[in-house]
Amino acid sequence: MILEVNDVVGAVSELVGRGYFGEYRIKDGQLYDLSVDKPVPVSDIHVDVSVRFESDPETGSGTNIFAISDRSTHQRGLLVDAFDMLVQECSKELFERLKTGPRETLKSEENVPSRYGLRKVYKSEFDEDPDRFVLRVGFPDFPPCPFAQSFSVLGFDTAEQQYVWLVTTILRDSRLTRVPYQNADTPDTD
């Protein structure tokens, strides 16, 4: 499958146009089909294509999009790994399955001061005042996601009281405080 796009929004739009209407998420280490709120057995997962957009060559952070077909239900949908954290959220078996599909690496988004309409925070800014930023989990006031899905976690600048995009190296930093909304599940990123 060849995609002729140069950004995440374009890739998602093109894949939806090719019939990948379903939405998948990682929950408890498994791939969940959100339309039926059930896990998909790893043996039923076929990755038709995965696309990676490198966003910061120095840190290796990026966004991954997986176009997935469920072999048992014939459902097709997308898994978007906007924080480049699947290795920490998936079971080992699921992570290995996701790596099996054909892979494309597309446009580099170097020096992008914002991402998805959110101010981008780099590690150097975080290191100056790590207590200023938190990772909010499951908050109902998240801004709309530009690729027809929804955010499950987002960075928050407590000084400016606004949502921000945290680069992957910050998400992996043990000093980043995770703040779940009431009873929201906190992703295990250790």
Rank of each mutant, 00 (worst) to 15 (best):
R115K: 14
N111Q: 14
Y116R: 06
F95A: 09
L79W: 01
R132Y: 12
F126S: 00
R136E: 06
M85N: 07
R71F: 05
K99Y: 04
A67C: 12
E110V: 14
F133H: 03
Y116I: 04
L118G: 00
P130A: 11
S124Y: 06
G138T: 13
K107F: 13
Y116C: 04
G138V: 02
V87L: 12
R71V: 09
G138I: 06
D81I: 12
A67E: 02
F83S: 10
P140T: 11
H74V: 12
D84C: 12
Q88D: 14
Q75L: 10
A82D: 09
G62S: 03
L98S: 00
L135C: 14
P102A: 10
F83V: 09
P144D: 07
S91I: 06
L94E: 02
F139A: 13
D129R: 09
R132T: 07
V134S: 03
E96D: 15
F66L: 13
F133V: 01
P140I: 01
N64F: 04
E96H: 03
V134T: 07
S72H: 13
K99A: 11
D141L: 02
V137Q: 10
D127R: 10
D70K: 07
P140Q: 08
N111M: 14
R103N: 05
R103A: 14
L79M: 08
G77H: 09
R71M: 09
R76F: 07
R71C: 11
V137Y: 01
P113M: 06
G138L: 10
S91W: 09
R71A: 07
P113W: 03
E93Y: 11
R97E: 04
K107E: 13
L135A: 07
L98D: 00
P140S: 11
L86K: 01
F126L: 02
D70A: 08
L79Q: 01
D141P: 08
M85E: 08
K99P: 02
R71Q: 11
K120P: 00
L94I: 12
F133K: 00
K120Q: 14
R136P: 05
L106Y: 04
R103Y: 12
A67Y: 07
F83C: 04
K123L: 15
R103M: 15
T105N: 12
T100Y: 06
N111I: 05
D129Y: 13
S108H: 12
G101Y: 01
V121I: 15
E128S: 10
V134C: 06
S69F: 03
E89R: 13
Y122D: 09
L79P: 01
Y116N: 15
S69E: 15
P144I: 11
I68D: 02
P130T: 05
R97H: 04
I65C: 02
A82F: 12
S72M: 14
S124T: 13
R119H: 08
R115D: 00
L94F: 02
E89Y: 07
S91G: 15
T63V: 15
E104S: 10
T105I: 10
E110M: 15
V112W: 05
L135N: 04
L135D: 02
E93N: 15
S108W: 14
F142H: 07
E125F: 02
S114F: 08
A82M: 10
V87A: 11
I65D: 00
R136A: 00
E89D: 08
V112I: 13
D131P: 03
F133W: 13
R115G: 00
